[in-house]
Nucleic acid binder design. Structure first.
Lengths: 131, 131
DNA sequence: TATATCAGTATACTTTAGTATAGCGATATC
DNA sequence: GATATCGCTATACTAAAGTATACTGATATA
């Protein structure tokens, strides 16, 4: 995927690429999906486990986001007929592949901080996203 | 950056990585930053040019997002002393590097659609983000 | 009998994000 | 003299995202 290496090629950027980017941003959309996916990269987890590990999330938000991720093919939900009921959430293969996107984000983020931390510290206080 | 290749390593994931991911998501945060960055990958542009090329954006949002991107070190703003005044927006080197993140998003998005389009079409209607 | 756990849902609320519309002052064109 | 362009800002609004708090029913533990 070296398509953008020649910047002229950006002009040939097809609609399907725009949709692909949108889908990816959607996977991380909102305040909670990233930490949820992050914790599930460690392995499958139950509802209450995720709730405990994702700091400050309410059950309402967790429930909503897990449904969203399920509908979008990023996690699977499995109910076990125990008492009380056990529900396990696990990343799909596609969901697990998100770690590649996260790696590119880590690379960019680290580089960006390095090149900006000298000149304009205030830049890094932007974080609308940070609670 | 093969850190996550061994999944056990995820457990060692340092705080700086979390911040890096947050910074990157921040760069794309909201409805408009992605299309703005996208259009600026073609080269530097003036305010009105961007307004024309990013469909349906209002000057209020464009102004706000450009400020945000500037403060975050992703675009530069240059004022030329012409009449009427000319203002040019351009991606910083760091901003240009975002195309790597976008590539990984394209790769994931295309793959994800391929593996999901057979089984559950409804999944791809999720798009909260799409206007 | 009282309390806790499981996986959530219900209701009401606050905060943040985005939209709609109008306007600025200087200059250039009709 | 009327209108258009430049790069925005001001005000008022709607819609979306997120929070707070309480609650469910079955079971297990104290």
């Amino acid at each position: 995927m070296k398509f953008f290496e020649k910047l002229e090629n950006v002009k040939k950027c097809p609609v399907s690429y725009v949709l692909a980017v949108q889908d990816t941003l959607n996977a991380f959309h909102g305040k909670w999906k990233m930490p949820i996916i992050g914790t599930l990269l460690f392995g499958k987890k139950r509802f209450k486990e995720i709730e405990r590990e994702v700091s400050k999330i309410t059950p309402r938000m967790l429930s909503q986001e897990l449904k969203d991720l399920e509908v979008n093919g990023i996690v699977t939900r499995t109910v076990y007929n125990t008492t009380p009921v056990t529900v396990e959430y696990e990343l799909t293969p596609s969901g697990r592949e998100l770690h590649l996107v996260m790696e590119s984000m880590i690379t960019w983020g680290l580089q960006h901080r390095q090149t900006n931390i000298m000149e304009n510290l205030p830049a890094l206080n932007m974080g609308r996203r940070s609670a």
